[in-house]
Design a binder for these strands. Structure first.
Lengths: 205, 205
DNA sequence: GTCTATAGCAGGATAGAC
DNA sequence: GTCTATCCTGCTATAGAC
């Protein structure tokens, strides 16, 4: 996807179409946006879009793949856990990982995440991506984190799988709430702190 | 809303329109469904819809109000906590409350919930209902539950606010996952157990 | 690759007969 | 309250000139 321009810095028409589509889909949903809306935003005629994409559906496809390549593929690799926990304590590791995720969730990626949330029951790819990329893979990752921390004697609690699930599921809602409050025009400064408080609490025990 | 027929048992045209709209909106989203689609499903002409609703938006309005009346208004009343915890232990109270919520979440209400989730960034009412009715009010409720349980010496942990937030936020994701897996055609039998395990874990400490 | 022009259909909504 | 008929706008997509 976008080999020479992963940040979509408005060079060519294709990327400008993608950027406009992401913005509009995030505001009004896929079915709420027309090809006219997108091309009008870019400043080209509707027919030009079909030089770059097969059809409207193909635009959404490309956006979802873009998100998967940036976020889904590498964020929850089980191989990194063991070594990470050799260098850091559990809360340090989780803070570090949360910080990395925050770096990856640029404004553009957050817009795509909104699109995925809005299409979750309508589009099979969105549904599967949430189930696998947003729920299952991170759950496996955090379960493994707390398991290894338990094996290394870094936490006392003897139900690390439960702690992993609690961390992932709670963090997901915190991040969801952040997106909602941002969409509602509210201040979102305290949400990093909310995650860090959660980490502290779960690592105490 | 629907004074004589809260379960929408297909008596009059208005209710049949509502039921068809809920079904279709839950599958394809508000903007993905046309007035034609709805009336075709019911078996009346498009113009008939305008005898019962001002326009398409008014159909969505009515659906959202229906949900609010059934779920939002009374599910998280702070007054019930004190007395509940006099009769039951904490895990019993939470189990009882989870069971009550499950009773209220009929298949019809779950469809409306899907609609709300899909419209969350597009429709201001959906956004506000999620923030207030699905995040804030339940959070306040569960924080209060754990606070009172703490005051009564029913739990040892001295951060009941955090426990309340963790319970609510984790349960929200579990319920979200349930909806996704159901939409994906998967079995959802073990989700009651998942909530009960969470309750047991949080009440132990 | 972009444009003009247009096909062909689907969208929300209304008027007026019954 | 439901119907037929119709309005007019917006929609996706394509053909073909430049």
């Amino acid at each position: 996807m976008l080999e020479h321009n992963p940040s979509l810095t408005k060079k060519n028409t294709k990327d400008r179409i993608l950027e406009a589509a992401i913005e509009l889909f995030a505001q009004r949903g896929y079915t709420g946006v027309s090809v006219r809306d997108i091309t009008k935003e870019v400043g080209v005629k509707e027919s030009s879009l079909y030089n770059h994409f097969k059809n409207k559906e193909d635009v959404l496809n490309t956006i979802l793949e873009l998100f998967y390549d940036e976020i889904g593929k590498t964020s929850f690799s089980l191989e990194t856990i063991e070594e990470g926990l050799n260098h850091m304590d559990l809360s340090g590791f989780l803070q570090h990982h949360a910080f990395m995720l925050r770096q990856k969730n640029t404004p553009l990626m957050i817009k795509i995440r909104k699109i995925i949330y809005m299409e979750q029951f309508r589009d099979e790819r969105a549904l599967n991506f949430i189930l696998k990329g947003i729920i299952e893979a991170p759950s496996e990752f955090y379960k493994r984190v707390f398991q290894i921390a338990h094996e290394k004697g870094m936490i006392k609690n003897n139900n690390p799988e439960m702690l992993g699930m609690i961390y992932q599921y709670t963090a997901l809602t915190i991040f969801w709430e952040l997106m909602l409050r941002e969409a509602n025009g509210e201040d979102i400064a305290q949400y990093t702190k909310k995650i860090f408080n959660l980490i502290e609490f779960l690592c105490e025990r």
